[in-house]
C-alpha cells in the first residue's frame, strides 16, 4: 500500500515537472522560432569554442613582450600589419591573443561563481519556502541585507579582506550573488508545496528531506536554469569591473577587464587597446542575455 502510493505520488510529481519543462524536441523547435534565441546560442557556443581552443586559436602567447612592435595599430589602419590583426599594446603584446585568452577567465569565473551562488541560493530558497515560520523569517532578513548592498560593494569588501585571486573572486562572487535564487525558489516552493503530490507525500509520512530532494528540487530546476544563465552575464560584467579596478584577476592571467584597464592609459595614442576588450565583453554578455531571455520565455511563461 505504502509503496504503491509512493509510486503514484512520484508519477504525479514527474508529470507536473514534464508539463512545465517540456521535451527536448519542443525546445529545439522553439529555439529555431526565436531569432534572438538562436543568435544568442550561436554567440555563446562561439565564445565557449574560443575559450576551449584558445591555445590553438591565438596567434601569439598573450604575455609575450615584443619590443620591436609597440603600439602597432589594427591591420586595416595605416601602419598596421596582418601579423597583429587587432594591433599590439605598449609592451608589444598581441591584442587579439589577449582577448582570446581573456575569454577563458570570463567564462571560468562566470560559470563557477554562478554555480556556487546557485547552490547556496537554491538551498536557502528550498529550506525557507518549505519550512516557513521563524527560519524563513531569519533567512529572508539575510536576503534583505544582501539586497541592501550593491553586489560590487560587497565583493569589494571581501576582496579587501582576502586579497585578489581567481579563487577568491569566484568565492566572493558566489557568496554575494545568491539572493535572486533564494527569493524566486522560495516563491516557487510556496506554491508547489500546496500541490496534491506534496500534500499526499506528507500525509503518508515521507520524510521532509526526501520531499525536498524528490519533489521540490526537480520542479525548481527551470527557475535555476533561467536565473543562472542571466547571472553569468552579470557576473562577467562584475568580474571585468573588479579586474578593471585592479581588485580582480591579477597578471599574468589575462582578463578582459585588465586588458581594458591597461589600455586606458594610452587612449590618446592607441584607442584600440581599450576598445576591443570592451566589444568582446559586450558581445559575450549580449549573447548570454539573448539566450537567457529566450530560456525564460520558454521555461517560465508567467514572466513574459
Amino acid at each position: 500500500m505504502g509503496e504503491q502510493s509512493k509510486t503514484i505520488i512520484d508519477a504525479d510529481s514527474q508529470a507536473y515537472m514534464r508539463k512545465r519543462n517540456g521535451t527536448f524536441k519542443r525546445w529545439s523547435k522553439l529555439l529555431l522560432r526565436s531569432k534572438t534565441g538562436t543568435v544568442g546560442l550561436l554567440i555563446v557556443l562561439f565564445i565557449v569554442f574560443v575559450a576551449v581552443f584558445a591555445p590553438l586559436l591565438a596567434p601569439y602567447n598573450p604575455n609575450a613582450i615584443n619590443p620591436s612592435s609597440l603600439h602597432v595599430p589594427p591591420s586595416w589602419m595605416e601602419g598596421g600589419s596582418t601579423a597583429h590583426l587587432l594591433g599590439t599594446d605598449n609592451l608589444g603584446r598581441d591584442i587579439l591573443s589577449r582577448i582570446i585568452y581573456g575569454s577563458q577567465v570570463s567564462l571560468l569565473v562566470g560559470i563557477a561563481a554562478v554555480l556556487l551562488s546557485g547552490i547556496i541560493g537554491v538551498s536557502i530558497g528550498l529550506i525557507s519556502g518549505f519550512y516557513g515560520g521563524f527560519l524563513d523569517n531569519i533567512l529572508m532578513r539575510f536576503v534583505d541585507s544582501f539586497l541592501a548592498i550593491p553586489t560590487i560593494l560587497f565583493s569589494l569588501v571581501f576582496l579587501a579582506v582576502f586579497g585578489p585571486s581567481i579563487m577568491t573572486l569566484i568565492v566572493v562572487l558566489g557568496l554575494t550573488n545568491w539572493t535572486s535564487y533564494a527569493r524566486l525558489v522560495r516563491g516557487e516552493v510556496l506554491s508547489i508545496k500546496e500541490r496534491d503530490f506534496v500534500r499526499a507525500a506528507r500525509s503518508i509520512g515521507v520524510k521532509n528531506n526526501k520531499i525536498i530532494t524528490r519533489h521540490l528540487m526537480p520542479n525548481v530546476i527551470s527557475t535555476f536554469i533561467v536565473i543562472s544563465t542571466l547571472s553569468v552575464a552579470s557576473t562577467i560584467i562584475l568580474e571585468s569591473s573588479l579586474s578593471f579596478l585592479g581588485l580582480g584577476i591579477q597578471p599574468p592571467t589575462v582578463s578582459w577587464g585588465t586588458v581594458l584597464s591597461d589600455g586606458r592609459d594610452y587612449l590618446a595614442t592607441s584607442w584600440w587597446l581599450a576598445t576591443f576588450p570592451g566589444i568582446a565583453i559586450t558581445i559575450t554578455v549580449l549573447g548570454i542575455i539573448f539566450l537567457g531571455d529566450w530560456l525564460r520565455d520558454v521555461l517560465d511563461p508567467r514572466t513574459k
Binding site: W271, G278, L286
Partner: peptide, 22 residues
C-alpha cells in the same frame, strides 16, 4: 536597451572619454 544593459559602464565611460575628450 539590450545593448545598454550588456555594455559594462566603465567601458562606456572610457569610450565617451575617447570620443568627446580625446
Amino acid at each position: 536597451a539590450v545593448v545598454g544593459k550588456a555594455m559594462p559602464n566603465f567601458w562606456l565611460g572610457i569610450m565617451l572619454i575617447l570620443f568627446f575628450s580625446v
